[in-house]
Design a binder for these strands. Structure first.
Ligand SMILES: [Mn+2]
Ligand SMILES: [Mn+2]
Ligand SMILES: [Zn+2]
Ligand SMILES: [Zn+2]
Lengths: 153, 153
DNA sequence: TCTTAGTTGCAAATGATTTGCAAGTAAAAC
DNA sequence: GTTTTACTTGCAAATCATTTGCAACTAAGA
């Protein structure tokens, strides 16, 4: 999990692995890579449709499966804050954790050395070889907390 | 998340909250509470069927929703190690993390003060009020690692 | 015992994701 | 540049997990 090589673009990563590049894949890769949001399959599909000819939703799913298989994207649940769908983001060098607000739906990212430490502890004490991991919290974001108890407490 | 009161049995917890107790609910509560495994809705359903008259699967789901709503059970993904289903366990006093082996499917639990520390850090530094959280890892368990590289390295 | 709001079973609906298959295409070989 | 072939796509149907509408039932307070 922590042995990630510096990331080039997804396109090259796939080519290096001998994966055939297609028009559809180029579009999907570019979208995931360029997005600041956490995208689910359908959002990705709609963005792709806007950008170019329609890509089939099945192709989106197949591309995501491919990327997951090579550890190039992470699949997130984000506490299933909206339905049962999953969200995707390019795997980053330093892993981060996600906070999902049950009230407003905002997703916040947070990074801390404690998490890295925890991963190492798990690998050592459980002799478990981590391939992927995710830490997600659900609750109230700071904004929603303030609205919750207005000027009180 | 850390302000959990000492847990009595689920039945009483629900009664205290004015929730009506039914024959079906008693069975489901007892099963979740007594299980050492992480159960998904269907497993729970099959266990219930064995134990008594058939309970409808919809009732299982409705009971789980109820328990989740009151924070009495936690819903786990366990890295969706088998399909997209979810798993359930009684919320415990001290939260723990889950390691899922992609090879053999084993689920291991692990507890560390680092996790509690991390939760506190999140609450403080993000002023995020944690209602629920989960940390899950996927990879290879120690047994499968050994089989992986037999006597090598 | 009566009453009623809350609960159940059942079957159908929903939402997310996967799959089979015939047609299309990238890219290696000629 | 043409051929070849294995890989990829679109489409529609299938699958899997979970939810919902509704009429019949029942827990528990009056
Ligand atoms: Mn993220
Ligand atoms: Mn999930
Ligand atoms: Zn919020
Ligand atoms: Zn294993």
């Amino acid at each position: 999990m922590e042995q990630l090589a510096p990331r080039r673009n997804l396109r090259d990563e796939l080519k290096d692995r001998g994966i055939r590049m297609t028009h559809q894949r180029e579009i999907v890769l570019e979208l995931i890579q360029g997005s600041s949001r956490h995208l689910d399959a359908e959002s990705l599909w709609k963005l792709a449709a806007r950008k170019d000819t329609c890509i089939n939703l099945a192709t989106i799913y197949r591309t995501l499966t491919l990327l997951k298989r090579f550890g190039l994207v992470d699949e997130l649940d984000l506490m299933h804050i909206e339905g049962e769908k999953h969200y995707y983001e390019v795997t980053r060098l330093r892993s981060h954790i996600h906070l999902a607000c049950f009230r407003c739906g905002e997703i916040q990212e947070f990074q801390t050395p404690l998490f890295t430490k925890l991963c190492k502890q798990v690998e050592q004490e459980c002799s478990f070889s981590i391939k992927t991991g995710r830490l997600e919290f659900g609750g109230l974001c700071s904004k929603c907390r303030q609205k919750e108890r207005p000027a009180a407490d």
